[in-house]
Measured scan of single mutants.
Amino acid sequence: METPSQRRATRSGAQASSTPLSPTRITRLQEKEDLQELNDRLAVYIDRVRSLETENAGLRLRITESEEVVSREVSGIKAAYEAELGDARKTLDSVAKERARLQLELSKVREEFKELKARNTKKEGDLIAAQARLKDLEALLNSKEAALSTALSEKRTLEGELHDLRGQVAKLEAALGEAKKQLQDEMLRRVDAENRLQTMKEELDFQKNIYSEELRETKRRHETRLVEIDNGKQREFESRLADALQELRAQHEDQVEQYKKELEKTYSAKLDNARQSAERNSNLVGAAHEELQQSRIRIDSLSAQLSQLQKQLAAKEAKLRDLEDSLARERDTSRRLLAEKEREMAEMRARMQQQLDEYQELLDIKLALDMEIHAYRKLLEGEEERLRLSPSPTSQRSRGRASSHSSQTQGGGSVTKKRKLESTESRSSFSQHARTSGRVAVEEVDEEGKFVRLRNKSNEDQSMGNWQIKRQNGDDPLLTYRFPPKFTLKAGQVVTIWAAGAGATHSPPTDL
């Protein structure tokens, strides 16, 4: 069977082979063929449309019947899901209200924590001031004790010197008594010597008188005998007598002179000795008097100093007792304040721990409710997609609110971060928990396990030699990294520990 286009092609070929045509004729024939082709295509399209309309009418009838069946089946399910969705919305509203209440309680707890922290800071300042005052008082007490020990040692030294001076005074008084006794003995010996000298002088005078009498008696006897002796021998006898008398007189005078000289010499020697002894004793007595006077003056001065030191010692002891009493009071006050502060800190920690436990429990309940609501929403969306139902505006708002919801909680030295990733086909969620104590904190952990970043959050360098970082993902083997023995993380510095297959460059001390 030939198509209209094939017939047109045969006809035009025959005409062209029979007679030659002009260009205008050819153009018109071409346009006519195009119109015929378009008409044929339109006829085919109309036939196809008619057949499709016939099929569409049958399909519409089948769809109508199916919609009636589906509407009867879905009406009950939709009512049940609407009821469950209403319950879920009520639960979500109650959870939102509970969350708002918990946020209010958390803000209240934070305000109480700030207030307690301020009070604690003030108490710590008072405690530091009390400890500083206690240290000052202890230093003052130590200085006073040192001064007291010095004063006591000086007192003992002065008492020793006073005892020595008293012994010296006793010795000097004994020496003075001995000197006085020697002086009295010398004076007695001097008086005795003077008496003996006077006696010797009297004896000498008496001997002179006796010698004169004997001489006169001898002259008288000789004169008497001379009268009786011969005149011839008188001159010879007289001359001999005169010579004998002269010789006797000379001898007697020599003896008297020698005895006189010896007596005067002895007397002068004894007198000089007595005078020297008297002068020496008088000098000793003067020196003893002077030394005794000086000793008395020094004793008086030392007694005055001793009394002054005793007064100072009594004042120091009184002040020391006052300082000890004040120190005891300060210690009791400090202990009482410290006990009160520790009790308040313990109560505050217990209260904060209780509130944190309650908040953690409520947060766990909220997370469980969020997971249940998310599961209900997934089931509802799956059924709506299976039944090709359009979601209600309320469910769209709930989905938008659930997809944009995120929370971040800080308290008790722990930080909890939650992130949620969404897509049109599926939804997944993960959470990161970080707890830090000390100078070094974990700043970031790569989700794909490529690196771990640490930061020194203090103002001092931290030695991290032979420290270890351990990481384990589920049931995978435990991964451990040990820092070099001499590694030190500077204040405020960040160090990144890269995985072996991350392709990073080893560049200490920032990249390991």
Rank of each mutant, 00 (worst) to 15 (best):
E178D: 15
E178G: 14
E178P: 14
E178Y: 09
E178K: 14
A179E: 14
K180E: 01
K181I: 02
K181Q: 11
K181W: 08
Q182I: 04
Q182V: 12
Q182R: 08
L183V: 05
L183E: 04
L183W: 10
L183P: 01
L183Q: 00
L183N: 13
Q184W: 13
D185Q: 09
D185M: 14
E186N: 12
E186F: 06
E186H: 02
E186R: 02
M187W: 08
M187I: 11
M187D: 06
L188A: 03
L188Q: 03
R190M: 09
R190S: 12
R190A: 09
R190P: 02
V191I: 09
V191K: 00
V191W: 04
V191R: 07
D192C: 09
D192V: 02
D192E: 02
D192P: 01
D192L: 08
A193W: 07
A193H: 00
A193E: 06
A193I: 07
A193R: 10
A193F: 14
E194S: 11
E194H: 13
E194Q: 11
E194N: 10
E194Y: 09
N195Y: 00
N195T: 05
N195V: 02
N195D: 04
R196V: 08
R196E: 03
L197M: 11
L197Q: 09
L197F: 05
L197T: 08
Q198P: 01
Q198T: 07
T199I: 02
T199V: 02
T199N: 03
T199G: 01
M200C: 12
M200T: 03
M200L: 12
K201V: 14
K201L: 04
K201F: 00
E202I: 02
E202F: 05
E203I: 01
E203K: 11
E203W: 00
L204K: 14
L204D: 04
L204A: 00
L204F: 13
L204S: 08
L204H: 11
D205A: 02
D205Q: 08
F206N: 04
F206C: 04
F206I: 01
F206G: 01
Q207R: 01
Q207M: 00
Q207N: 09
Q207P: 02
K208C: 10
N209Q: 06
I210P: 00
I210H: 02
I210F: 06
Y211V: 11
Y211R: 12
Y211S: 15
S212W: 13
S212C: 10
S212P: 07
S212A: 05
S212R: 12
E213V: 07
E213A: 08
E213D: 08
E213S: 13
E213R: 04
E214C: 02
E214F: 03
L215E: 04
R216T: 06
R216G: 08
R216D: 00
R216A: 04
R216F: 06
R216P: 05
R216M: 03
E217T: 04
E217R: 11
T218C: 15
T218K: 09
T218R: 10
T218E: 12
K219V: 10
K219C: 12
K219I: 10
K219H: 10
R220P: 11
R220S: 04
R220K: 13
R220T: 07
R221H: 07
R221Q: 06
R221T: 03
H222F: 00
H222D: 13
H222M: 07
E223V: 00
E223S: 06
E223I: 09
E223T: 11
E223F: 03
T224S: 09
T224E: 09
T224Y: 05
T224L: 07
T224W: 09
T224I: 08
R225N: 00
R225D: 12
L226P: 08
L226D: 14
L226I: 12
V227N: 14
V227G: 15
V227Y: 07
V227T: 04
V227C: 07
V227M: 15
E228D: 09
E228Q: 11
E228G: 05
I229M: 12
I229E: 14
I229N: 12
I229L: 14
I229H: 03
D230I: 09
D230S: 11
D230R: 12
D230W: 00
D230Y: 10
D230G: 15
N231K: 11
N231V: 09
G232D: 03
G232Q: 06
G232H: 09
G232K: 02
K233N: 14
K233D: 14
K233W: 05
K233P: 09
Q234W: 05
Q234R: 12
Q234G: 07
R235T: 08
R235S: 09
E236L: 08
E236T: 10
E236C: 08
E236N: 06
E236V: 07
F237H: 06
F237N: 04
F237Q: 04
F237C: 06
E238S: 03
E238N: 02
E238Y: 04
S239M: 13
S239I: 14
S239R: 06
S239T: 05
S239C: 15
R240H: 10
R240D: 00
R240F: 12
R240Y: 08
R240P: 01
L241D: 07
L241P: 12
L241W: 00
L241E: 08
L241Q: 03
A242I: 01
A242T: 14
A242K: 10
A242E: 05
D243K: 12
D243C: 10
D243V: 15
D243T: 12
A244I: 08
A244F: 07
A244Q: 02
A244P: 10
L245F: 15
L245I: 00
L245R: 10
Q246Y: 10
Q246E: 00
L248H: 02
A250V: 11
A250Q: 12
A250K: 13
A250N: 09
Q251E: 10
Q251M: 12
Q251D: 11
H252G: 00
H252S: 11
H252Y: 02
H252Q: 10
H252T: 12
E253R: 13
E253P: 04
D254S: 07
D254R: 01
D254P: 03
D254A: 13
D254E: 15
Q255M: 11
Q255P: 01
Q255A: 07
Q255W: 13
V256T: 06
V256H: 07
V256C: 05
V256D: 04
V256K: 02
V256P: 03
V256E: 07
E257G: 07
E257Q: 09
E257S: 03
E257A: 00
Q258T: 09
Q258V: 14
Q258W: 07
Q258L: 13
Q258P: 03
Y259M: 05
Y259N: 05
Y259W: 09
Y259P: 04
Y259E: 04
K260T: 09
K260I: 11
K261R: 12
K261T: 11
K261M: 14
K261I: 07
K261L: 14
E262P: 01
L263H: 02
L263W: 04
L263M: 12
E264K: 01
K265D: 09
K265V: 05
T266W: 08
T266G: 05
T266S: 11
Y267L: 02
Y267E: 00
Y267H: 02
Y267T: 05
S268Q: 13
S268K: 06
S268G: 12
S268H: 14
A269S: 09
A269D: 08
A269N: 13
A269H: 14
K270P: 00
K270L: 00
L271I: 10
L271S: 01
L271Y: 07
L271W: 05
L271C: 05
D272R: 07
D272C: 03
D272L: 14
N273S: 08
N273D: 13
N273M: 11
N273Q: 12
N273L: 08
